[in-house]
Amino acid sequence: MEYLLNTNDLKKAYLGKPVVNKININIKKGDIYGFIGRNGAGKTTTMKMIAGLEKPTSGSLELFGDKNLNYGRSKIGTVIEYPCLYPYMTARQNINAQRHLLNMRDESIVDEILDIVGLGNTGSKKAKNFSLGMKQRLAIALSLVGEPEFLMLDEPINGLDPMGIKDIRDLILKLNKERGITVMISSHILGELVKISTRFGIINKGELVAQFDSDELKEKVKEKIKIRVNDVDRAYNVLKEEIGVENCEIDSEREISVFDCLEKSGEISSALAKNDIILESMAKEGSDYESYFIELMGGNNND
């Protein structure tokens, strides 16, 4: 499998206190990787280490399967923390400054990039007079100079109105589908990330607590009946043989999750009682991405 980014026990500590602790991120070519975590969880620091803005305290990383990071970074476009623009320049001039920096001689890429991000008609308007949404789009435009294969976008939809969020979402999908650009995107707006991401990484207090594909996520958050009993092995057999449950799994010594036959909760309790299995509790769960992510991020109390 072709991994575009691999981090190996990547760690960053300030004054001995780890803010990113031995994380191992794997991003495949073509992924849209949703990087989720609370404020201060370590998302930006991780992205900065990947971009070469901060040096890891320990650990290593590979870009495009290569440990020569300068070469890999030349194929990355980044927007980290906030749109980094020259406010006294127009959108075109900002892109030109970046074009000179990356020795892109073909001036036609400026119009092409401006059209992609929808800023083709901003004319002589200076970047300082742009709305936040326009600034975000211009920052993405700058990151596209140099034909990157990998985009890292840190909170690109922060502070945007719903239309602005939709514009950025559509732009990311377009870049991913039409140009095959792999994207790593961090955000607090979980609903938006779920809409576009094909893979997720959850970071909590500097540690990568989970990493999974969107299919796995769907599997994890789908509706289920959570049953708590005194004998899970016997209960498992009863569910399979007497109720006809096909999809269920033992979660712990006393808990089973049932993913189908959700309408048969009455039958389940009778069957368990008939087999002398003590049913301690039974509840419907799932169907909520947000709750699942929050649970992974340490729940509501995470001090």
């Binding site: 803005l53 070469y71 030349s74 990355i76 980094c84």
Partner: peptide, 13 residues
């Protein structure tokens, strides 16, 4: 402006 990031993140020395 943060534009130094646009340079350093591109692997420029």
């Amino acid at each position: 402006y943060g534009t130094i990031k646009n340079m350093c993140s591109k692997g420029i020395s």
